[in-house]
Write a protein that binds this DNA or RNA. Structure first.
Lengths: 234, 234
DNA sequence: TTTAATTAATGACTGATGGTCATTTATTAC
DNA sequence: GTAATAAATGACCATCAGTCATTAATTAAA
């Protein structure tokens, strides 16, 4: 009897189709402005049907977001699986996050939007758990490289790898979040190009966690952020 | 004829009373969950009256937020006006921001919540401008100290003071935001105490922008973040 | 094939809420 | 004391997340 299996497949397909529709609408309008009626329309289903497949608007939002987490996870896994030195991989991790920001900004936006507990109301336990798991995998990638750096003696031994991961991630994240929302404000009011700031911040952070030996070895790499003229003048 | 003046005063007072009521409700429930009816009730006015004084819920939210910006501004001004060395003042700035976070968390929450352009919809030009101005003042404090540090030769000369301000601010901000929303998650899932992370992050950041000379001079200060045992062992 | 039973889908409806505006109330001017 | 003006009100509207009784489609049984 293959009927239950087929039904299960069809159900899963429906769930995917609904996510596709939801993604389209959420990307365009954001969680707030998107309406379930719009999503239903995009999915060519009635609103009631959406609720047969997802508990709430927020659950649906998280379902879309999970795709983004997976993409990011893959990009990080890619960056940390090369044969290059750990210091280079650390730089590549930062670059990868910025690439993700540029190529998948809608997902990035969802990430930081959903951090607010205000929107966790309608989220089911299940979905929250799944999301936490996926998220954890991404962290593991970052922590792993830092731990390796410590083991190899290129990252300062007195640093805690998890804490350090949080520090690196947070600083990158904070600046990209600003890039997303306040790029123009910072350019016009403060004369600052946030892309430049991100580059310099990543370099500063990296410098600050490396051992003296590693810094000397990769000096050329670290210098890329500082304008030659300025260094020369001072 | 003092009547117009008195009326103006009364009007201003009303505006303040409304902000008081709004603050109470926003602090309790956040922008989303707070309702204009609640605020009206708290202000002992009808909802319609609120709209005679403020254009939208968001405008009211910003009016409350401005108070927070002023408090933060004062705390920063305090931290940077002492007679202490610039390096110490830089540390104090970081400490002041964390103090603000602890003592005025509701305001802090409002700040980062409102960064999302999704909520800028109902905001009037006026209110947005005012907010931008106030915000600018806070940035000026941070930038000023960094500039002074460069002039005195304690902050690396190749750094741009505005960019550096953004970097320092953003990293502190990012970690405190996480403290507000994910303290438990990080403790339980990753075994990390974000307060510790903040302390270390601030130290790392400070280290990374100081000149070698300044680092040597204030070594004791910078060491406070690293556990003695660990440093000794390695 | 026909009928019963089960599963899937629907959309009218509810309750909540931001914002409006015609009407009422209070204040000021004459 | 009355007209004119300003302030305040709350019933009302439109929007929208979520529900549920009803309908349609599919599967199982006779």
């Amino acid at each position: 009897m293959g009927i239950p299996e087929r039904k299960e497949r069809e159900k899963e397909q429906r769930r995917e189709e609904i996510i596709n529709a939801a993604q389209k609408v959420f990307f365009e309008k954001g969680l707030q402005a998107a309406t379930m009626d719009e999503i239903a329309e995009a999915a060519e289903l009635s609103k009631g049907t959406l609720y047969l497949y997802y508990k709430s608007k927020e659950d649906l939002y998280l379902a879309v977001m999970m795709r983004g987490i997976e993409i990011l996870h893959n990009m990080f896994a890619e960056a940390t699986s090369s044969q290059e030195p750990t210091v280079v991989q650390l730089m590549k991790l930062g670059d990868a996050y910025y690439e993700f920001f540029k190529q998948h900004r809608n997902y990035f936006r969802m990430f930081y939007f959903f951090q607010h507990p205000q929107f966790h109301k309608g989220v089911s336990e299940d979905m929250m758990m799944n999301c936490g798991e996926e998220n954890q995998k991404v962290w593991k990638e970052v922590i792993g490289v830092i731990q390796r750096g410590i083991d190899e003696g290129v990252v300062r031994a007195e640093l805690n790898p998890v804490e350090t991961a949080v520090i690196l991630w947070s600083s990158s994240n904070a600046i990209m979040t600003r890039m997303d929302t306040q790029m123009e404000y910072f350019k016009e009011r403060m004369g600052v190009d946030l892309e430049e700031v991100l580059r310099k911040s990543n370099t500063l952070m990296l410098e600050s966690i490396l051992t003296e030996k590693a810094k000397r070895k990769h000096q050329a790499l670290l210098m890329r952020s500082w304008p030659v003229a300025k260094v020369a003048v001072n």
